[in-house]
Amino acid sequence: MALFEARNLHKRFGDQVVLEEINLSFEAGTLAGIMGPNGAGKTTCFNVLTGRYKPDRGNVTFDGRDITGQSPEKIVQGGIARSFQIMNLFDEYSAIDNIKVALPDTRRRRFDILHAFDGASEAEARAEAVLASVGLAGKEHFPAASLSYGERRALEIGVALAADPAILFLDEPTSGLGTEATGRLADLVRSLRDRYTIVVIEHDMRFLFGLADRISVIHWGQVIAEGTPEELQANKWVQRSALGSLN
């Protein structure tokens, strides 16, 4: 059984059908990709998978449990975390405080979330370890706003990892990054894949093809192709659409 599955997902907004008969499955210990042209429905699909939208029909299961329609907060508590295309950080907080805010114990407090922590606390140590895992050791007390754009992307991934998830969803992680920063991000994601099941929605095909075990192509609100990067590069539809080009 796959760790995460979506079956027969439908989603519409008014008269517009955005997703139709979406079927996806992600195996534990793999890095899966979702790609497609703008307007294909992949972002809506991502939001349905992670609880931002409730599907009109179909179901989503995680580790054998039906999580269809659960709130994002409950989904996070269940072991699923995600980053966002538009970064969602507390700019006035330090890097380490951004991580501490996202720790499970902090989320349960829901009040006085920072003053409850001692500098030598278990939370401090956990947050330092998370920052080290995303390449931000030494930047613990830098305000988030002072970090470079690439470092902020890494911090956002750290915020997602603070919840100690079983599966990590990354939404367009290379958005806004230059070539050098994209390479560093690829190295970071590669370093995480041994510890987490990862699903990436991405427009940068070179980035995705260089990392993913399997990729699903969404177009017209449907999954129109699936396979390894090599299989998709040989797929005639993908070739015609230029989605499989690495140039």
Rank of each mutant, 00 (worst) to 15 (best):
A154Y: 00
I157A: 11
L177V: 07
R153V: 12
V189S: 03
I157R: 03
E156A: 14
L177N: 01
L155N: 05
I198S: 14
F169K: 06
S175R: 01
L168I: 11
A181V: 01
I157C: 09
E172V: 14
T179E: 11
S175L: 03
R195K: 15
A160S: 12
V199D: 13
R152C: 08
T182D: 00
R195D: 15
R193Q: 14
G183F: 02
P165A: 05
R152M: 11
A163K: 02
R153F: 07
T174F: 01
I201F: 05
R193M: 13
V159N: 02
R193I: 11
A166K: 15
E180N: 13
E156S: 13
I198P: 14
T174H: 00
V189A: 04
A181G: 00
R184M: 10
E202A: 14
A181D: 11
T182I: 09
P173G: 07
L185P: 00
V159G: 00
L168D: 09
R193L: 07
A154L: 02
P165E: 07
G183S: 13
V200A: 10
D187C: 01
E180M: 04
Y196A: 06
A154Q: 12
I157E: 04
P165R: 06
L161Y: 07
V159S: 02
D187E: 14
L161P: 08
V159C: 13
I198C: 14
E156P: 13
L192Y: 05
R152A: 08
V199E: 13
H203W: 11
A166Q: 15
L170T: 06
H203P: 10
G176W: 01
L155T: 09
L188M: 08
A160H: 07
A166S: 14
G183I: 06
L170P: 09
L177A: 02
I157S: 10
E172N: 09
L192T: 08
A181M: 10
A163F: 04
L161R: 08
G158S: 12
L192R: 03
R152Q: 15
H203V: 15
L168G: 09
A162H: 06
R195F: 03
D171R: 06
S175V: 11
D187R: 12
I198A: 15
I201K: 08
P173H: 07
L185M: 11
P173S: 04
L161W: 09
R152S: 07
G176L: 03
A166I: 02
A186G: 09
A160I: 11
A186T: 07
G176I: 02
P173F: 06
V189C: 04
S175K: 01
L188Y: 02
I157Q: 05
S191M: 03
V200P: 08
R193E: 10
G176E: 02
T182K: 04
L192Q: 04
G183Q: 12
H203C: 13
V189Q: 00
I167N: 00
G178Q: 01
A160L: 10
I198Q: 12
D164H: 14
L185K: 01
V200E: 05
G178I: 05
A163P: 04
